[in-house]
Design a protein around this nucleic acid. Sequence first.
DNA 1: ATACCAAGATGACAAATGTCATCATCTATT
DNA 2: AATAGATGATGACATTTGTCATCTTGGTAT
Lengths: 205, 205
Amino acid sequence: MNKINILLAEDQTMLLNALATILDLEDNLHVVQSCANGKQAFDYIQSGESERVDIVLTDIEMPDMTGLELAKQLFESKVPCKTIILTTFARSGYLRRAMDSGVKGYLLKDSPSQDLIDAIQKVHQGGTAIAPELMVESWMEKDPLSDKERHALRLAKDGLSTEDIAKKLFLSTGTVRNYLSSASSKLNAKNRIEAARIAHQNGWL
Amino acid sequence: MNKINILLAEDQTMLLNALATILDLEDNLHVVQSCANGKQAFDYIQSGESERVDIVLTDIEMPDMTGLELAKQLFESKVPCKTIILTTFARSGYLRRAMDSGVKGYLLKDSPSQDLIDAIQKVHQGGTAIAPELMVESWMEKDPLSDKERHALRLAKDGLSTEDIAKKLFLSTGTVRNYLSSASSKLNAKNRIEAARIAHQNGWL
DNA sequence: ATACCAAGATGACAAATGTCATCATCTATT
DNA sequence: AATAGATGATGACATTTGTCATCTTGGTAT
């Protein structure tokens, strides 16, 4: 009988191990590889020496290479496997980027593990599986931020001063303040910190 | 043969299910109950109708009642069970509070699942199990913040203005600025945001 | 070449934040 | 009663941040 071959990418070792165990218990699933980040996963699949991989199941926020980057690389390299995202965050920006990278499933860690098993079967048969929390249309706002605004906000979030941000981005302090100001107004925030929070919640950072 | 009875508290359903499954696979462990937060766990144990619980394995950051609160309640109620914390965060403040609540184990979700199984056995036999990352002495700084400083910082972290914070805490804006200022200086931060970040990283918020 | 547009920079001003010394109350302690 | 602590308020001042209008510069489409 032909099992569905799965590769896991998840930086939380405890969850990685536990998932590998419970998926392997299913009699038509087989975990071929467990990885701690996107890079490891991509290298394994690219190496060619690997077993065939049908489904890549990956977290988003990981060191070295995120799950979204991994999905994009696999998509662009036309690797014949299907990607399912498994993440804590119901952020519209993440889902949008995932869909743009040809992802077939997007599940939340909040859902029961049976949902995951169902989703794997469904995706393998050519379907898609999106967590219901994310199906609401109104969620889908586009990221209004420019690249510079995004970078500046990311640094502001950690408490860096205008001057420190300017140094890191090789810009004048005035320009940095202009970017942060326009970011705040785009997001209807009262200050840079609230702006950073809003952007982060939407998956735009 | 007498199995070790375990109660799980973890708000991430996927991990909760997966852990329950792999622990139950061990032939001397038995998961008697899975809970989504501390309150459910405490109520179950208090109800009396429950099976005996030897080990409570709990996350920290959960809605309704955190794992630290749960540990404290169990400790103070002199319930004859041993608590193990399983969390993402290697924060000295968390560990300190955990130890003060009579916790017997503190593990990170980053460690392999086998560590968890070993820790449960060890704690059940009367030992303790602390993740090695947390054993370093220098980690153990005491929280230098006062209650008011902590509250103000928590709100500042979300981008609230001095005035908004003042309203929420029923204080004058000047007083709020004083608290935030002293918090920043205690933490060697350049501004309220950096102070909030440092406090958060140490588990003081 | 001309006009145009984007990325940055600048300057000016208002508003918010950071810092510090000082003052007013209210409790405990002795 | 006298003293000391803790909590909070106030005022003054420097610094940082937010906002906007206006330049400069280097492409680029016509």
